[in-house]
Measured scan of single mutants.
Amino acid sequence: HDVTIHAGDKTIHVHGASEEFLRIIEQAKRDGIHEEELLRLIEELVK
Score class of each variant (00 low, 15 high):
His1Phe: 15
His1Gly: 11
His1Ile: 15
His1Lys: 14
His1Cys: 05
His1Pro: 10
His1Met: 14
His1Asp: 09
His1Ser: 13
His1Tyr: 15
Asp2Glu: 10
Asp2Lys: 11
Asp2Leu: 12
Asp2Thr: 15
Asp2His: 13
Asp2Ser: 10
Asp2Trp: 08
Asp2Gly: 13
Val3Asn: 06
Val3Phe: 07
Val3Arg: 03
Val3Asp: 06
Val3Thr: 08
Val3Leu: 12
Thr4Asp: 11
Thr4Ser: 07
Thr4Cys: 09
Thr4Ile: 14
Thr4Ala: 06
Thr4Trp: 00
Ile5Asp: 05
Ile5Asn: 03
Ile5Cys: 02
Ile5Thr: 02
Ile5Ser: 03
Ile5Tyr: 00
His6Asp: 10
His6Gln: 15
His6Gly: 10
His6Arg: 12
His6Leu: 03
His6Val: 15
His6Trp: 00
Ala7Gly: 07
Ala7Glu: 05
Ala7Asp: 07
Ala7Leu: 15
Ala7Lys: 02
Ala7Cys: 08
Gly8Phe: 01
Gly8Thr: 06
Gly8Ser: 06
Gly8Asn: 08
Gly8Glu: 05
Gly8Gln: 05
Gly8Tyr: 01
Gly8Met: 01
Gly8His: 05
Gly8Val: 03
Gly8Trp: 01
Gly8Ala: 06
Gly8Ile: 01
Asp9Gly: 15
Asp9Asn: 14
Asp9Met: 05
Asp9Gln: 10
Lys10Asn: 11
Lys10Ser: 09
Lys10Trp: 01
Lys10Arg: 11
Lys10Asp: 06
Lys10Met: 11
Lys10Leu: 11
Lys10His: 12
Lys10Tyr: 04
Thr11Ser: 11
Thr11Leu: 09
Thr11Asp: 10
Thr11Ile: 13
Thr11Gly: 09
Ile12Ser: 03
Ile12Val: 13
Ile12Lys: 02
His13Tyr: 01
His13Glu: 09
His13Thr: 13
His13Pro: 05
His13Gln: 07
Val14Asp: 03
Val14Tyr: 01
Val14Glu: 02
Val14His: 03
His15Ile: 12
His15Glu: 07
His15Thr: 09
His15Asp: 05
His15Gly: 04
His15Arg: 11
Gly16Val: 07
Gly16Ile: 07
Gly16Asn: 13
Gly16Lys: 02
Gly16Ala: 07
Gly16Phe: 06
Ala17Phe: 12
Ala17Ile: 14
Ala17Gln: 06
Ala17Met: 14
Ala17Lys: 02
Ala17Arg: 02
Ser18Pro: 11
Ser18Trp: 07
Ser18Ala: 05
Ser18Ile: 06
Glu19Ala: 06
Glu19Pro: 11
Glu20Ile: 02
Glu20Thr: 01
Glu20Trp: 01
Glu20His: 06
Glu20Asp: 15
Glu20Leu: 01
Glu20Ser: 05
Glu20Phe: 00
Glu20Gly: 06
Phe21Thr: 13
Phe21Asn: 07
Phe21Ile: 15
Phe21Tyr: 03
Phe21Glu: 07
Phe21Ala: 14
Phe21Pro: 01
Phe21Trp: 12
Phe21Lys: 04
Phe21Arg: 02
Leu22Thr: 08
Leu22Asn: 05
Leu22Pro: 02
Leu22Ala: 05
Leu22Asp: 07
Leu22Arg: 03
Leu22Phe: 07
Arg23Gln: 15
Arg23Leu: 13
Arg23Asn: 15
Arg23Gly: 12
Arg23Asp: 13
Arg23Phe: 06
Arg23Trp: 06
Arg23Ile: 12
Ile24Gly: 03
Ile24Thr: 11
Ile24Pro: 01
Ile25Cys: 02
Ile25Thr: 01
Ile25His: 00
Ile25Gly: 00
Ile25Lys: 00
Glu26Asn: 09
Glu26Leu: 04
Glu26Ile: 08
Glu26Thr: 08
Glu26Lys: 05
Glu26Arg: 07
Gln27Arg: 10
Gln27Glu: 12
Gln27Lys: 13
Gln27Val: 08
Gln27Met: 09
Gln27Thr: 11
Gln27Ser: 09
Gln27Cys: 04
Gln27Tyr: 00
Gln27Ile: 10
Ala28Leu: 11
Ala28His: 07
Ala28Val: 07
Ala28Asn: 02
Ala28Asp: 00
Ala28Gln: 03
Ala28Ser: 09
Ala28Trp: 09
Lys29Ala: 10
Lys29Asp: 05
Lys29Cys: 06
Lys29Asn: 10
Lys29Glu: 10
Arg30Asn: 10
Arg30Ile: 12
Arg30Val: 11
Arg30Thr: 12
Arg30Gln: 13
Arg30Trp: 04
Arg30Asp: 06
Asp31Gly: 09
Asp31Ala: 14
Asp31Asn: 13
Asp31Cys: 06
Asp31Ser: 12
Asp31Thr: 11
Gly32Met: 09
Gly32Lys: 07
Gly32Ser: 04
Gly32Val: 04
Gly32Cys: 01
Gly32Asp: 08
Ile33Glu: 03
Ile33Ala: 14
Ile33Lys: 10
Ile33Asp: 02
His34Lys: 14
His34Gln: 13
His34Trp: 10
His34Ser: 15
His34Val: 15
Glu35Ser: 15
Glu35Val: 15
Glu36Trp: 06
Glu36Ile: 09
Glu36Thr: 11
Glu36Gln: 09
Glu36His: 09
Glu36Ala: 10
Glu37Trp: 03
Glu37Val: 09
Glu37Ala: 12
Glu37Tyr: 03
Glu37Thr: 07
Glu37Gly: 11
Glu37Leu: 11
Glu37Ile: 09
Leu38Trp: 09
Leu38Cys: 02
Leu38Glu: 00
Leu38Thr: 01
Leu38His: 00
Leu38Ser: 01
Leu38Asn: 00
Leu38Lys: 00
Leu39Gln: 09
Leu39Arg: 10
Leu39Thr: 07
Leu39Glu: 08
Leu39Lys: 08
Arg40Ala: 12
Arg40Tyr: 07
Arg40Ile: 12
Arg40Cys: 04
Arg40Ser: 12
Arg40Phe: 08
Leu41Met: 12
Leu41His: 02
Leu41Lys: 04
Leu41Ala: 02
Leu41Gly: 00
Ile42Ser: 00
Ile42Gln: 00
Ile42Thr: 01
Ile42Ala: 05
Ile42His: 01
Ile42Val: 15
Ile42Glu: 00
Glu43Asn: 10
Glu43Lys: 06
Glu43Pro: 00
Glu43Ala: 14
Glu43His: 10
Glu43Val: 12
Glu43Gln: 12
Glu44Trp: 06
Glu44Leu: 12
Glu44Asp: 14
Glu44Ile: 12
Glu44Thr: 13
Glu44Phe: 09
Leu45Arg: 03
Leu45Phe: 15
Leu45Thr: 05
Leu45Gly: 03
Leu45Ser: 04
Leu45Ile: 08
Val46Cys: 09
Val46Glu: 07
Val46Tyr: 05
Val46Leu: 15
Val46His: 07
Lys47Phe: 04
Lys47Val: 13
Lys47Cys: 09
Lys47Leu: 12
Lys47Ile: 12
Lys47Arg: 13
Lys47Tyr: 02
